[in-house]
Every structure is written in C-alpha cells, then in structure tokens.
Design a protein around this nucleic acid. Structure first.
Lengths: 179, 179
DNA sequence: CGCTTCAGTCTGGTGAATGAACCATGACTT
DNA sequence: AAGTCATGGTTCATTCACCAGACTGAAGCG
C-alpha cells in the first residue's frame, strides 16, 4: 500500500497481497479490467474515482505487475491498461469475494451473473462450471450478464450501459471498441 | 467503508464486500480472528495497529455481522471478538487472496502453511484437501503451522510466538487461554 | 496504597483522498 | 488559422482518515 505505513511488518502473504490490491479502489479497478475496461477515461466514468487517484492506482498496479500498459494508437499516444498473467490470477479471489458480498452485504442479489461461455451454465460459488466439472473456470471462458431482477438504480454512464449487455470477460467494452 | 464517500454508487457485489472488509486493516483483523486471536490487546500486539483504529474496525465488523462480541469474564467485563457464520464464510476469499499474495508478492514463500487437520495433508490452491477430495475444507478443519524456511525476521510479540507453533484455526491462541 | 492488566477514549499532527480546475497533444470543424 | 473536442493526465486547496502516544477507568494483586 502506498500509505504512510504499509503492512511491511506483517509476516503474512495476505498482507503482501493487500499492499498490492488492498487500497481503496484498487480491487474495483482490477474488477473493471476483468470486465473489459481498458482506458483511463472508461475507468473514470465507470468508477467515479478522482482522476489523480486513478492515475496513482493504475501506476501502482502496473508497478506491481498486475496491469500492463498497451498502446492502442500512436499519434496522440494512447494506451489501455490490461491484466497481466499475474493479474488474471486474481480472478479466483475476486470472484469469491464478490460472491461473499452478494450473499451477505447486498440486498436483492447481485447485479451481474457469470456463466461458463462454452456451455452457458452459471458458475457455482467456487467459480467452477457445474455442467462441465473440473476446477474453476478461467476468466477468458466466462460471460457476464446483468441480473434481470436488478434493473432499477443502474448507473447510466456509457461503460455501465455497455456492461448491461451480456459480455465475455476480458473483451474490450464497446466504448473502447467504437473509438 | 467508513470513508467519506463509500462505494455506494457501485452496482457491484464486490463493492458491497469491500465496504465491509475493504478498509485498511479490516481483512488482517479477520485473518487474525481465523488464527484464533480474540482479544483487543492481542489484535493490538499482533497487528501493531493504532488503538483507535482497532476500536473502529472491530465495531464496524461487528456492525456488519462479520464478528460478534462474546464475554469471556464478568467483574471487569471483558469480551473477545469471534467470527460469526458470515465471517467464517470469508475463509475462502481470504485463503485465495493469501495464496495469490504468496505466489506473486512474497519473496521466499509464505510464512504459514495450512493443512487439513484430520489427514495432515496440505491444502491445495483452492483450499481443498488433495487427499480427501471434495470441495474446500472449512476453516474448523484446518491447522496452520509456520513455514520452516521462513524463520528469520519474525515478529516477537506474544501472539506471533503463539502462532509460531502448529495451531488449529479458530482455536483461541495461548495468550488468551492462559489468562 | 501503589502497580499492573485490559479495553478502550482523547488529542494533536501528518499524509492521503477528494473534487475542481487547469494543461498538453493531436485530430476535426469551420 | 482559430476554435473545439477527445483523451490522459497534473496541480491545488480542502477534507478526512490514520497515526502515535497520553490519558481514563475498572478491577485484581502485593
């Protein structure tokens, strides 16, 4: 963590993980990256995070090897932020924490549902496909869709709208693809 | 989160979860609760957290239903903080995040190893027992032990010392048991 | 009576988060 | 050529959370 005192005195692998993704916004940025958000502006729109904080978090996540910068145009040089291999491995913890939040801290159930893309079966609590068996499904094989019972009170920024349609994880969202 | 602006505008179950356990120290407190830490002073010693912050976090976790206060003596009324059923369900995300941290953010491997108590087999990446099969092992059936290759640089507070011996999760640590 | 333990609360200083405004680059419009 | 827009930032004043350490209070010990 970039806070004054970090967790360095903690012996624990968890503390190490929290130094990377434990700060406010960090895990939401990573989540958005799984959702296909790649551009600075799209993170900004979707999260409603102050620009300076977003800059700091993205740089920290890049420095930690969770994200990498990938140019998508020259001319005015622009780049997106994509998950690295290390970042992709956060899918498991992220999914489980999200499910926990859906069970215990959300009234009315989750806003998004996740299914195994090849077979269309919803993932179980562990992120595995009950139909296909085996271990947890990698994020590249997961499709998210909005929960039909949770339509009210949606955000209406372009990114949220793009995510209101079924969408494979990791695939750049329409907002970016249109540019 | 008790921050000025919380994540309330986020549609996501993950954001809800982070409001509960996303603040600095919160997840480390929950981790310690799994380790068997129950008392205010033991959290204080083990985490090196400011007292006022610990008070705030414990109260927030109790309010969120993750921990509950359980009196362990009258006279000067004293109580420990124990995981509720909801809190126990954080074991999965916590374990996975910890493993991620061990893989990617720790040099020299983790400080603690976790085994399935009945059979003594180390848990796999998902928190399941490779020997016994089936899904993830509940925390009550897990024993933690120090990683023998990570002895140097240990903390030397009484709680860390108590945790430097093999110890079933959720069982009150010696420091508390002795009092 | 003084000392210690435990679980806090209070206080004053520091640094991080916030929101708004501003800047830089290049393309597009008129 | 000037103005405007899109994108991706930086700067700044204010607010707020975190921090360390002192203090409180209740009970037990010698």
């Amino acid at each position: 963590m970039a806070l004054g005192t970090d967790y360095e005195s903690q012996d624990c692998a968890l503390a190490r993980a929290l130094e990377v993704v434990g700060e406010r916004w960090s895990l939401l940025i990573v989540r958005d990256a799984f959702y296909g958000v790649q551009r600075f502006n799209d993170f900004l729109l979707h999260l409603g995070i102050p620009r300076a904080v977003l800059t700091a978090r993205l740089n920290a996540l890049v420095a930690a090897g969770v994200l990498r910068k990938e140019p998508y145009q020259q001319a005015p040089l622009r780049h997106g932020y994509l998950l690295t291999e290390v970042g992709l491995e956060l899918w498991g913890p992220l999914y489980q924490l999200s499910r926990w939040g859906g069970r215990h801290a959300t009234e009315g159930g989750p806003h998004h549902l996740f299914a195994h893309t090849p077979c269309g079966t919803d993932l179980d609590l562990l992120g595995a496909c009950p139909q296909c068996g085996g271990g947890p499904v990698p994020p590249a094989e997961v499709t998210m869709r909005p929960n039909p019972v949770r339509i009210a009170g949606r955000r209406d920024d372009p990114v949220s709208l793009a995510l209101a349609r079924p969408h494979p994880l990791l695939e750049p969202i329409a907002s970016a693809a249109a540019a």
